[in-house]
Design a protein around this nucleic acid. Structure first.
Lengths: 238, 238
DNA sequence: TTGAAAATCACTCAAATGTGCGATTCCCAC
DNA sequence: GTGGGAATCGCACATTTGAGTGATTTTCAA
């Protein structure tokens, strides 16, 4: 069950795996690439990975340009991507790497718990975010975690993410809204203006305005912008 | 250094702790309360906690009402809060509990990896979110993690969170904006209107409008609402 | 069937917003 | 020192939006 010898706990059950990337590797070996400036860290990382059962380090790159070429050739399962590279930031190549290798999982690896970089990374498509202080066992665990389709992040990073949601504040009480009102609110949150909403809903211009008035009352706001602000994050589905 | 005997890794360094709750416990003991429907789970949880060095289970409650009373009295450091309780959902008392005991950390504990409940919980102020399949070692680790001010979540939960940010899409290119423009955009994203922004920035009404005009051009939008939509999620700081 | 909530539309008026054009000042890099 | 970006302000005009008021139709459950 355990491919890790460094830690007591690794993986409890053969979780339903969303990603199919594991099927693509030979004999369940996780192929890892490293993109890292610092030679020393790079070496110790590849040593750790190669020294662990079930993991294989298939590449180590010093900058973004080299990494893109190497990763396109090597087709790793997971890439450990440093952010503070000399030259281009690692963040700027997340998308590119994922385009090259669609099944690729990107695990950011950095010393700083910087909000700006964290959220940029996540929005660019990163699958995990680890601080360099992360102990080896947990690092390997994270790699195998993202490999099976889950995500991983350090406790301090998770804290920033949680803080983000705390700041969003309590969710807007969409329960109080009628279905029509909710529909219109969603259109608002896409930036449409009243006339467009009227067309989209197939109703009159003035009707939209009436609905908006009611929405504002229910959400305790007095402008469309405020309504959008209140709405955001609530239900990203659809 | 290690208060956990169940796992190899616990805590590497005396991290700077944002919360002061640890100072308030006697001799570094983490006081945990449980709010859990199922008697069996409840018992095994309290057994696990009491059986682990550094942890102490000071209460087990079956429903929200009982929990509120008990937690107000016991002042635990961390509460393990089940979501699917009979009667009121656990989510609805997160805020209340935190008001009663401001230093309290709330760790959601549930079987389902439901997006709706996850995001509602986080926005209500939950500090962590664990699935019940979480192995004991990791559970204890999570408790001590949130206790020192970090956050914890299961891999599958982290995956949902990450997915949320992926859906937000790439961040708006705020680099193109000047600092003043960015400042104004942030005010926009809080729902302020032009006059208010002018006051907040200490500049004239017409200047705000000029800045807005430029912002719209740079973001390729034609209304404040669109600008807000584009902006959202980028940098919630301040 | 009857009542209440939901959805629809219309009209008005004031306020806020979008847009085009022009202008001055300040600061910094070349 | 000079050119250019950034920040500032002003004015004019059309459009959009917010808010008040009233009314009709649809829907659905008691």
């Amino acid at each position: 069950m355990s491919r890790l010898t460094h830690t007591a706990y690794v993986r409890r059950k053969p979780l339903r795996v969303e990603s199919v990337s594991s099927q693509m590797t030979s004999t369940d070996l996780i192929k890892v690439s490293i993109v890292e400036d610092d030679e020393r860290i790079c070496k110790s990382l590849s040593a750790l990975i190669d020294g662990s059962q079930g993991f294989r380090c298939i590449g180590a790159h010093r900058d973004v340009k080299e990494a893109v070429a190497g990763i396109a050739a090597g087709c790793p399962d997971v890439v450990l991507l440093d952010i503070n590279l000399s030259g281009t930031s690692g963040i700027d190549c997340i998308r590119e790497l994922k385009n090259l290798v669609p099944t690729l999982k990107v695990l950011m690896y950095t010393v700083y718990d910087d909000e700006e970089q964290l959220f940029r990374s996540l929005r660019e498509g990163a699958d995990g975010y680890l601080l360099k202080r992360t102990p080896p066992a947990r690092l390997l665990e994270a790699i195998s975690d993202v490999h099976i389709g889950n995500s991983a992040m350090s406790g301090q990073i998770a804290r920033l993410v949680v803080k983000y949601f705390h700041q969003l504040g309590p969710r807007v009480e969409t329960e109080k809204l009628t279905s029509r009102e909710l529909e219109i609110l969603r259109h608002l949150a896409k930036g449409y203006q009243n006339k467009e909403i009227a067309d989209l809903c197939g109703i009159g211009f003035d009707t939209v305005r009436t609905h908006l008035r009611n929405i504002y009352h229910k959400l305790h706001v007095n402008s469309r912008t405020e309504a959008v602000v209140r709405f955001f994050g609530s239900s990203l589905k659809e």
